[in-house]
């Protein structure tokens, strides 16, 4: 009994933390969404979403995030596979290199990309030296997606790598033994056993990509708006409106929850190893 109390006491900081910084903000979001400027109950914020170009902004954001996620997956899956088959020492080194950008502040990374992609930036200077360009790259959707991929790629590689490294090499031999060609080994063993990591990775890239505002502001230059920018503008910009900003956040949250649910359903069909 005494141990039970102690255990509960040990969990207390986490409970308090969650209540203060997760539950309370969510309640605020709900409160602001369903109240007007005067503080009385209102659905105006929700109905206002149907007007203007908010739908386009949502679609744009989802598309950009989806493209970034797909690119991350295409890069990360083979990379994680190759890492997981390396010698233990090289594995550690590669994973360290993948983690390295995470140690640097996110904003600094984004600024670095600005200086790389600018019309007078690193790439264009180099192109100029060989008599090419300049190529306009900054403030395009491509630049924003590049930024997303660079910032979030480690979150795709790490979970996939961790499930891949956990696959017993004997299973691959067993599959070969039972008549699988290398391609069949991949389809029948490696993919089903790694899909859980893929789902984690996709979630961990898609969710921050769809809600990012910093990357799109710095690398997109405000030429097009993503949902993250829009939300931010209602909290910090000139047209401050917590109530409408909260409504936008709520809808984004619902969209993310739906996409996660779909993803997990897809994962259950393959196998139940999702890490989320």
């Amino acid at each position: 009994m005494k141990r039970g109390i102690l255990q509960r006491a040990a969990a207390a900081p986490h409970v308090v933390w969650s209540a203060l910084f997760i539950i309370a903000p969510l309640i605020f979001v709900l409160y602001y969404t369903f109240t007007g400027q005067d503080g009385s109950f209102s659905l105006d914020n929700i109905t206002r979403l149907g007007k203007g170009n908010y739908l386009m902004i949502f679609v744009n954001s989802l598309c950009m995030a989806l493209i970034a996620t797909v690119i991350c997956f295409v890069i990360a899956y083979p990379a994680a596979y190759i890492f997981s088959r390396m010698k233990k020492k090289s594995q550690k080194l590669c994973i360290l290199l993948i983690m390295l950008p995470l140690w640097m502040n996110f904003l600094i990374t984004t600024y670095s990309w600005m200086t790389i992609l600018e019309d007078t930036g690193v790439i264009n200077t180099l192109l100029g030296l060989v008599g090419l360009g300049p190529v306009h790259m900054i403030n395009t959707p491509g630049a924003v997606i590049t930024g997303m991929v660079f910032c979030f790629l480690p979150y795709m590689i790490l979970p996939i790598y961790s499930v891949m490294a956990g696959i017993d090499p004997k299973l691959l031999e067993a599959a070969a033994d039972l008549g699988c060609s290398p391609v069949q080994i991949f389809m029948k063993v490696v993919w089903p056993l790694s899909v859980g990591g893929v789902i984690s990775g996709v979630t961990m890239v898609f969710v921050p990509s769809v809600s990012t505002f910093y990357i799109s502001q710095k690398l997109g230059g405000g030429t097009f708006q993503l949902i993250g920018d829009t939300i931010e503008s209602y909290f910090t910009g000139t047209a401050v409106n917590y109530h409408f900003g909260a409504a936008l956040s709520l809808i984004l949250m619902v969209l993310i929850l739906i996409s996660m649910a779909v993803m997990n359903r897809f994962g259950d069909d393959e196998q139940g190893g999702a890490l989320i």
């Binding site: 017993d168 004997k170 299973l171 031999e173 067993a174 599959a175 063993v189 089903p192 056993l193 393959e270 196998q271 190893g273």
Partner: peptide, 10 residues
């Protein structure tokens, strides 16, 4: 037949 069985866990 492998030493530690190597059954497919999924």
């Amino acid at each position: 037949v492998f030493q530690k069985y190597a059954l497919f866990p999924n």
